[in-house]
Design a protein around this nucleic acid. Structure first.
Lengths: 200, 200
DNA sequence: CGTCCAAGTAAACAACTGCTGACTTGAGTC
DNA sequence: GACTCAAGTCAGCAGTTGTTTACTTGGACG
C-alpha cells in the first residue's frame, strides 16, 4: 500500500520538502479522498516528519489547499486555448484519459472531485472547475462579453463533466470495459461526443 | 448541518429501525463520503442508538454494503429496459438530474462514486455500475450473446460516466452554470449527447 | 571555534473514531 | 402477574486522528 517517494536529494531543503509533501498529498488526496488520506501516510510517502505539514502548511486543510493551488498553476501553463483548437483539445483530453499510468494528470482531475468539507477549499475547487469550463467554452466560440454565446458555457460544462465522470470510472473505480479500453477506442467513442458539444 | 429524520413511528420496530438507518446512511455516505460520515451522526439522523448499527449490520462497512444493496433493489424495479426505449431512458435520466431537490435518486447515483476502501464493497459497486452500463447498452441494441454488439458496451459506459460526472458537478459540487440550469436546458444539452451515444 | 537560526525530530495531547459488553425496557404468551 | 426474549440504552475501551510543544541537528557566518 505504501508507495514512498524515491529518496529525496538533500537533508535540509525547505522548498524541496514542501514540494515533496504536496506531491505525496496530491496522490493520496486524489486516490483516497480528503478524509481517507492521513497526514502520517502523506508524510511517510514524502519521507518527511509529520510535524512539518503543520509547520509549512498550517494544517491538513492548508496542505489540501496548496494541492489545489498547484493544480491551478500547472493547468494551462501558458496562454489560453483559442477558438478553433477543437481537435487539439480533444486529443489532449483523451490523451489524459488514456495514458493514465505514467501521466500525473489524472490525479489532478480526480483531485477536483474530492471535497474536504471546508468551505474555503471547496470554493477554490469550484472556481477551478469553472475556469476549466470557460477554457472548454472558448474553444466552442464562447466570449465572456458576448451574452449571445452564454449557452455555450453549459455545453462546455457538460463536456467537462463527461470527462470527469469517465476519469472516475476508469481511474478511480476501475469498472469494465472502460478501464481496459485502448486509446484508440476512447478517441473513437469520446471524440465525436466532445466534437458535438464543442462544435461552433 | 444535522438533518434528522422526522420522528419515527413506533418505539420498537426492528425493520423500521433498519430502514431508518439505511436511509440516513445513504444520505450521509452520498454527501460526505464513507470516511466523512460517522456512525454517530448517522444514528442521530435516524433517531436511533449508535450501537444498533453494529447490532443490525455488524459494522459500519456492513451498513455501507446494505446501502449499496438497497440501491440494487430500487433501480430497475421491475423488468429490463428494452431496445428502442431510447427516448424514455433519456427523459428518465435527465429527470433524475433535474429534479434533484425532491427526488431521492441523485443520492443513489452519488453513492456509486463513493468508496469505502473495502474490497468487497468496492466489488459490489463495480458490479452495479456494470449492471447500469448493460441496461444502457441494451437500449442501444446490445445483446449479451452477440459479440458483434460488444462495442456498444463502451459507448453505453461513456454515456453512464457522463451522467455520473454531471450529477457530481450539479449535485455534490454545485458548480455554475449547471447547478442552476433548468430541466429544459439539461434536456436540450444532454439529450442529443445520449441519443448520439445510444443510437442503434 | 562559537554563535545563531532555520530545518528537522520525538513524544505526547486531546479529541474523535468504530465498536463492545453488560445492562434496562417493552411487549407478547401462558 | 411471572416469564421470555428481542429491542434498545449506556458507558467505556482501544485505536487513530490532527496538532502542538519542547527538543536536537546541521550549516553558514563572524
Amino acid at each position: 500500500m505504501g508507495d514512498p517517494e524515491p529518496p529525496r536529494a538533500a537533508g535540509r531543503d525547505a522548498a524541496g520538502t514542501r514540494s515533496a509533501l504536496v506531491r505525496a498529498a496530491r496522490r493520496r488526496f486524489a486516490t483516497e479522498g480528503y478524509r481517507g488520506a492521513t497526514v502520517r501516510t502523506i508524510a511517510a510517502d514524502a519521507g518527511v516528519n509529520v510535524a512539518l505539514i503543520n509547520r509549512y502548511f498550517g494544517s491538513k486543510e492548508g496542505l489540501f489547499e496548496a494541492c489545489l493551488r498547484r493544480s491551478v498553476d500547472q493547468l494551462d501553463p501558458q496562454g489560453r486555448t483559442a477558438p478553433g483548437d477543437l481537435d487539439r483539445v480533444v486529443t489532449r483530453v483523451v490523451g489524459h484519459l488514456a495514458d493514465l499510468p505514467n501521466a500525473d494528470d489524472p490525479l489532478q482531475l480526480l483531485l477536483l472531485l474530492r471535497s474536504s468539507g471546508d468551505e474555503r477549499a471547496d470554493a477554490i475547487r469550484r472556481r477551478m472547475l469553472e475556469h476549466h469550463t470557460e477554457q472548454f467554452a472558448r474553444v466552442a466560440g464562447w466570449q465572456p462579453d458576448d451574452p449571445a454565446t452564454a449557452p455555450l458555457l453549459l455545453r462546455a460544462q457538460v463536456a467537462l463533466g463527461s470527462v470527469l465522470g469517465l476519469v472516475m470510472l476508469r481511474t478511480a473505480i476501475g469498472v469494465q470495459p472502460i478501464s481496459s479500453a485502448s486509446a484508440d477506442e476512447l478517441v473513437a467513442t469520446l471524440g465525436p461526443l466532445l466534437r458535438t458539444l464543442l462544435a461552433p
